[in-house]
Write a protein that binds this DNA or RNA. Structure first.
Length: 859
RNA sequence: GCCGGGGUGGCGGAAUUGGCAGACGCAUACGACUCAAAAUCGUACGCCGCGAGGCAUGUGGGUUCGAGUCCCACCCCCGGCACCA
């Protein structure tokens, strides 16, 4: 491959041949990394309480898989540059790093290699920490943490007990998602995509009925949703969370069952106004009322349908393109307002897990109900029509219109999916309906009627489910619960925390957590009555760990609580957070929930953990595919570093494109960065032969280039478009190289420009800039210097190229002074030879002047 | 199907948000240096055309003195959701 051609022996050498004359990344990097560590230049002043100066710059911590991949480099270089930049701008930047250290790979390794997960994990952490140190980041390693340490997970258990006290944790027997490969249950968020696969391993999940612990995140659904607009997050993440929470407004309606006084079918609907179009009811096959409602004549058919529904896989049942199936129960519900009997069916397109597991089916207004009614020959009564008079036939009509055949609603306007507040001019025009303030709307009216009749009321429903946190795995936080025959479910007292994972335990390839059969762990005494009892053997979802780690970094060894609120003064909430977008509805949702609970517990006094978030993109293999061993397209950062040096890898990764975009890693382009560094090295170290006295215009031009670069680089670093910043530095370095032999290179401004180039490059390439900074005789360390101060006056151009257009096409360019008046510019343009030529003596019809840019002559 | 993001030279990507399209870099070609190669330096480099010039930012329309940028319709790629009542 091309990159292999660049080897150290082939680097350019200065004729003088002295030591500093050529750039040897390996030597430079080792030297300065050691020096930085000794001098502790990256130690944050943690005791500073100055909120305006403190800058908590956090990036998502990794799972300690045991080897750093290119994606890690990409993810950590961005915030490292960002943090270094802000540090140079005078901030007291805290950039901590730690490990999301619980999880299944450690258990698999334990089985395979007969090594305890704790040992395996620690070895990986040690190795990865060394790898990350070779990146040359500004991470403050004093603050590191690993969530598998008892001093950390003790507080998961503490939080669990606090949640229990506030009724935010509960145990429930319910159908849950089970990953047959990981041998554990998953939260709804951890089941992905159309095929409903496990987020970790990609295996399709199955349903199981299990007793599981859950956190009541749904209690915070409204707040989680309503705070979203205030967050400075990528719009797509906010939209994903909004859709995930899935709030919908509508009504609950209760339908009596004919002949069975004790049974009432409750439904949730977003369109209560369509009540009179409900020509049948549908219950989920698992609905608890099905047995009671089913008549003897239909019992066999219903049982058969229930049986086949239960045997279907999740995927089959959820498939949207499947033809509708269902069975009549023989029973009838009564329309609560008109007492019209409505046949009750069961069908698998109604899900027990959403709403009440039962619907009123309105074939006129709902495409799914329409399809079902068509297939089974059920009536499709018309209940609304478009106000525009257009015909509706053959399919469901669910748009705004006028109600009909709906008793008390006849003639009323329905806004359908719209609310009165969102009914604007666009809707009036589209649907031909304007709604006066005092004019009743069908949905509003029907809710009044239902409330009066005691048959229903306005209701809000959510898609969000409670967070299932039980995992049937060993390598996680033990849930601090004891089951006693006499006292039932008993929380472990705070003073007994942490419940530690045993170290002397055997791992067998049964797929089952060894905790379950490990008597010394399971057998205990009831904290309540002292009698024999058994411990809960499930452990917590590892997303529990990452829900509050940002607080723990501030005092990682604090023993008096999850974090030291004193030490946190001036540091919270996190100023800026970076990480991958794949956590949109997992970690990023859970940690928002957790922060709100912590606030309600009085631990913190703000509502959101991460007011600002930025996502990096994904680095792909040279073939534009996701890097994976099986594809053989993995680019190993250690190899790259050995070959090119850490600064080059950092610089190249950032030069590929905007940081939020990611992209394929091509070996070809890395040469560009290598050459750039060599040129900078040469520019800084080669003998300067310049002499003479420059003109003031020459000096001004140098300063202009310098200050324009400062502005461009600042903007780029602040907006994570490091590629543009590096390009600006390349341009600046190119122009300095051109000036090197001129008189301007004898000036103090020249020296300042050279220093400036190093300072601005320092966040991207910390080692080479440090070496050159020292070589130029400056004091250690470049990373403790202030950022060059931008001076707008010096950046300002004195003249510009005025573009002269005729009919919008560029015909000429003339030099013009900045601040030229419209009249002068026009005169200048019209005087141009080319323009004279093109206009052929015709007078201009119109002249447009864009100040500082162009003149467009229309003829 | 719904919701996001995106289509700019051979390639990665710029473009102050409506004002010189292609910055910066890669690749390529030619030249200098060299016995030679590599490295380095220099020149060229969107397409068509000898040229003046014309055509070019996924496709087709529109608004405008002027559109990569705004509006309408469509095509393709990447993510997310998936019978959500």
């Amino acid at each position: 491959m091309a990159y292999q051609r660049i080897e150290q022996g082939l680097l350019p050498t200065n004729p003088k041949g002295d030591k500093m004359s050529h750039y040897n990344p390996a030597e430079v990097e080792a030297t300065w990394q050691q020096r930085w560590a000794e001098a502790e230049i990256y130690a944050t002043e943690m005791d500073s309480q100055d909120e305006s100066r403190n800058y908590y710059n956090l990036t998502m911590y990794p799972y300690p898989s045991g080897n750093l991949h290119t994606g890690h480099w990409y993810a950590y270089t961005g915030p490292d540059i960002f943090g270094r930049y802000h540090r140079m701008r005078g901030k007291n930047v805290f950039f901590p790093f730690g490990y999301d250290a619980f999880g299944l790979p450690a258990e698999n390794a334990a089985i395979k290699h007969n090594i305890h997960p704790a040992r395996w994990t620690q070895d990986n952490i040690d190795y990865m920490t060394e790898q990350i140190k070779r990146m040359g980041t500004m991470i403050d390693w004093r603050a590191t943490l690993a969530t598998c340490e008892p001093e950390y997970y003790k507080w998961n258990q503490w939080f669990f007990l606090k949640f229990l006290e506030r009724d935010l944790a509960y145990r429930e027997m319910a159908p849950v998602d089970w990953c047959p490969s990981c041998n554990t249950t998953l939260a709804r968020e951890q089941v992905k995509g159309e095929n409903r696969v496990c987020e970790r391993c990609g295996t399709p999940v199955v349903k199981r009925d299990l007793d599981q612990w859950k956190f009541r995140i749904t209690r915070y659904a409204d707040e989680l949703l309503d705070e979203l607009p205030n967050l400075d997050w990528p719009e797509r993440i906010k939209i994903m969370q909004e859709n995930w929470i899935g709030r919908s407004y509508g009504a609950t309606i209760r339908f009596p069952v004919q002949g069975i006084d004790s049974a009432t079918i409750e439904v949730f609907t977003t369109r209560p106004d369509t009540l009179f179009g409900a020509s049948f009811m549908v219950l989920a096959p698992e609905h608890p009322l099905v047995d009671q409602i089913t008549t003897d004549a239909q019992r066999a058919a219903v049982a058969a349908y229930q049986h086949s529904a239960s045997r279907q896989s999740e995927i089959d049942r959820m498939a949207t393109d499947k033809e509708k199936t269902g069975v009549f129960t023989g029973g009838y519900a009564l329309n609560p307002l008109s007492a019209t009997p409505i046949p009750i069916w069961i069908a698998d397109y109604v899900l027990m897990g959403y709403g009440t597991g039962a619907i009123m089916a309105v074939p006129w207004g709902d495409p799914r109900d329409h399809e079902f009614a068509t297939k089974f020959g059920l009536p499709i009564p018309q209940i609304s029509r478009p106000a525009t008079g257009e015909a509706v036939a053959g399919q469901a009509f669910d748009g705004p219109g006028i109600m009909m055949n709906s008793g008390p609603l006849d003639g009323l306007v329905t806004l359908a999916k719209y609310e009165r507040e969102s009914w604007g001019a666009a809707q009036v025009a589209e649907y031909g309906i304007s709604l006066e303030t005092d004019q009743p709307e069908a949905k509003e009216r029907i809710i009044e009627l239902l409330e009066t009749a005691g048959a229903g009321e306005a209701a809000v429903n959510y898609r969000l489910r409670d967070w299932l946190i039980s995992r049937q795995r060993f390598w996680g936080t033990p849930i601090p619960i004891v089951y006693c025959d006499d006292c039932g479910t008993v929380p472990v007292p705070y003073r007994e925390l942490p419940i530690e994972l045993p170290m002397d335990i055997d791992f067998k390839p049964t797929g089952e957590s060894p905790l379950k059969s490990y008597a010394p762990f399971v057998n205990t005494r009831c904290p309540h009555c002292g009698g024999p009892a058994e411990r809960e053997t499930d452990t917590m979802d590892t997303f529990v760990d990452s829900s509050w780690y940002q607080y723990r970094y501030l005092s990682p060894h604090f023993e008096g609580g999850p974090f030291d609120t004193e030490a946190a003064i001036g540091w919270l909430p996190v100023e800026h957070y970076t990480g991958g977008p794949e956590h949109a509805v997992m970690h990023l949702l859970y940690t928002r929930f957790w922060t709100k609970v912590m606030r309600d517990l009085g631990l913190i006094d703000f509502d959101e953990p991460f007011p600002k978030l930025f996502n990096q993109g994904m680095i792909l293999g040279p073939d534009s595919q996701k890097m994976s061993k099986s594809r053989g397209n993995v680019v190993d950062p250690d190899t790259l570093v050995a070959e090119h040096g850490a600064d080059t890898v950092r610089g190249y990764l950032m030069f590929i494109g905007p940081w939020d975009q990611g992209g394929p890693f091509s070996m070809e382009g890395i040469q560009g960065i290598t050459r750039f560094y060599h040129r900078v090295w040469e520019l800084m170290t080669a003998d300067n032969e310049a002499s003479g006295r420059p003109t003031s215009e020459q000096v001004a031009a140098l300063e202009r280039a310098f200050h324009q670069t400062i502005e461009r680089v600042q903007e780029a670093y602040e907006s994570f478009t490091f590629n543009v910043g590096i390009a600006a530095l390349m341009e600046f370095s190119n122009s300095l190289r051109e000036l090197r032999e001129t008189a301007v290179a004898t000036t103090a401004q020249w020296e300042a420009a050279l220093d400036g180039l190093l300072l601005m490059l320092a966040p991207v390439a910390p080692h080479i800039t440090e070496a050159l900074w020292a070589e130029r005789g400056n004091d250690f360390s470049i990373h403790q210097q202030p950022w060059p101060e931008f001076d707008a006056a010096k950046a300002k151009e004195e003249s510009f190229e005025l573009v002269v257009q005729i009919n919008g096409k560029v015909r000429d360019r003339v030099k013009a002074p900045v601040g030229i008046s419209e009249g002068e510019a026009t005169a200048l343009a019209l005087a141009s030879e080319r323009v004279q030529e093109m206009m052929n003596g015709n007078p201009p019809r119109r002249v447009i002047y864009v100040p500082g840019r162009l003149v467009n002559v229309v003829v």
